[in-house]
């Protein structure tokens, strides 16, 4: 079944919150609607579901990868070319520690950035219903649902006091 989205625009936080309540009452699942804002609000301002993320796993995996790469690079290069310099041991641990440290941090940071993008569900190829007024302070309530329930959602939003209603296409993955 095709997935459609519809966006209602609200001018203040309270009506937007009311709209969310109304959607909830109308039997929409929490995964079917979301608030779009131009600025971060404290969590739960609109009574929306608290987002759950697993971002903290990414830097750990990244750090482990970076550490291993650093270890292999530093010990590997020294063992592959056992050239003596300045009487330092072939496996000089203090310099290895420095480079392994940088490798660990680089791995952690790269994975974190990937994690942020992944957990933010970006990049989003199809914008769906959107309104440029959101970045000017309006609050959007977007409902992403089956084609059959779209008009019902529109009604709920309109009754809650939406200024402007817009429809957009969605892909299955964006639901």
């Amino acid at each position: 079944m095709a997935i459609r989205s519809v966006l209602g625009l609200f001018n203040n936080e309270d009506t937007a919150a009311d709209a969310l309540d109304a959607l909830n009452e109308a039997g929409f699942d929490q995964s079917e609607y979301e608030v779009l804002t131009g600025t971060p609000y404290p969590e739960g301002t609109f009574g929306e579901a608290e987002p759950v993320h697993k971002l903290y796993r990414f830097p750990l995996i990244g750090a482990a990868c970076g550490f291993i790469v650093g270890l292999l690079l530093t010990s590997g290069t020294q063992l592959a070319f056992p050239l003596v310099t300045g009487g330092k041991p072939i496996l000089s641990i203090p310099p290895m520690a420095i480079i392994m440290y940088e490798g660990t941090m680089l791995g952690a940071i790269l994975f974190t950035v990937v994690g942020i993008i992944f957990e933010s569900r970006l990049p989003r190829l199809l914008m769906g219903a959107y309104n440029t007024k959101i970045t000017e302070g309006a609050i959007g309530v977007a409902v992403t649902t089956d084609e059959t329930k779209v008009s019902q959602a529109e009604d709920v939003l309109r009754n809650a006091g939406a200024e402007d209603l817009k429809r957009g296409w969605e892909t299955e993955q964006n639901r």
Partner: peptide, 15 residues
């Protein structure tokens, strides 16, 4: 990257 400003995106931005 198709930013929309959902609570999830904002939360991850803060984290």
């Amino acid at each position: 990257l198709g930013w929309r400003g959902t609570p999830r995106q904002w939360k991850l931005q803060a984290v």
